[in-house]
């Protein structure tokens, strides 16, 4: 019987395997965003300190992760960790680490920018009533910086989700890698399968990212309205 290609999606356990791959993708993105955000907030606060060497080092860290494409970062860690440092981590862990470090670097800049946008008199007023450094952060700066940095953070999240498509390059069994396996297995009987498999993966990414980018747009609009 002739296959129309779409059958490849539903044949056997193909669809549940794709969903399993998607879960690997989402899991890595979530953990990286969580760890990266926490580390990034701390680094961002450190970057507002008047300590020049520290600021320089953190700036260097940010610029390195900005300049080197994520594909290259993945390979750097994937190849060099075991070779130079004798650290053998599973590919999924390497990927999570790279994404977390990348998110942390970008977050540090978002947080720094947001903290510096809080009006100076707010800080001075806090100091005047005798708040300690951490009280000032906790009760004055962070609550006001939060809405300023949120749109960029959501935008970063969509970028992280999209960048997880690179996981297959270091042979993580993510949704794309599994999709390719299914395509290869069915290539003879259903050459059209490639269309449907990549199509469904395309949809998966869109379904995850679209709400996030709507949220980002909404936040930006609200902030613009608040400014006027």
């Amino acid at each position: 019987m002739a296959h129309s290609g779409i059958d490849v999606l539903t044949a056997g356990s193909n669809f549940s395997r794709l969903l399993g791959g998607l879960w690997v993708t989402v899991k890595i993105a979530l953990i990286a965003i969580l760890i990266g955000t926490i580390v990034g907030i701390l680094l961002g606060i450190l970057r507002t300190l008047p300590n020049r060497p520290l600021r320089f080092i953190l700036r260097l860290y940010l610029e390195f992760f900005r300049i080197v494409p994520t594909v290259v970062l993945l390979f750097l860690f994937y190849y060099i960790l075991p070779k130079q440092f004798n650290v053998n981590l599973p590919a999924e862990t390497v990927a999570t680490l790279v994404f977390a470090l990348w998110v942390a670097s970008e977050m540090s800049d978002i947080v720094r920018g947001a903290l510096e946008s809080v009006p100076q008199h707010q800080k001075e007023a806090g100091q005047a009533i005798g708040l300690s450094y951490w009280q000032l952060q906790r009760y004055v700066l962070i609550p006001q910086a939060w809405p300023l940095g949120l749109p960029a953070t959501v935008n970063l999240m969509t970028r992280v989700v999209k960048t997880t498509s690179l996981l297959m390059l270091i042979s993580v069994m993510d949704v794309i890698n599994i999709g390719q396996q299914i395509i290869e297995a069915n290539n003879k009987t259903a050459p059209n399968g490639v269309f449907w498999i990549y199509g469904i993966i395309f949809m998966f990414y869109f379904i995850i990212n679209y709400p996030l980018s709507r949220w980002d747009k909404h936040l930006n609009k609200r902030r613009l309205e608040a400014n006027h």
């Binding site: 969509t158 960048t163 498509s165 690179l166 990414y205 869109f206």
Partner: peptide
Amino acid sequence: IARNTPLLIQLFF
């Protein structure tokens, strides 16, 4: 569509 999907999948397509 273009903004919410990864370039890698676009290229595969």
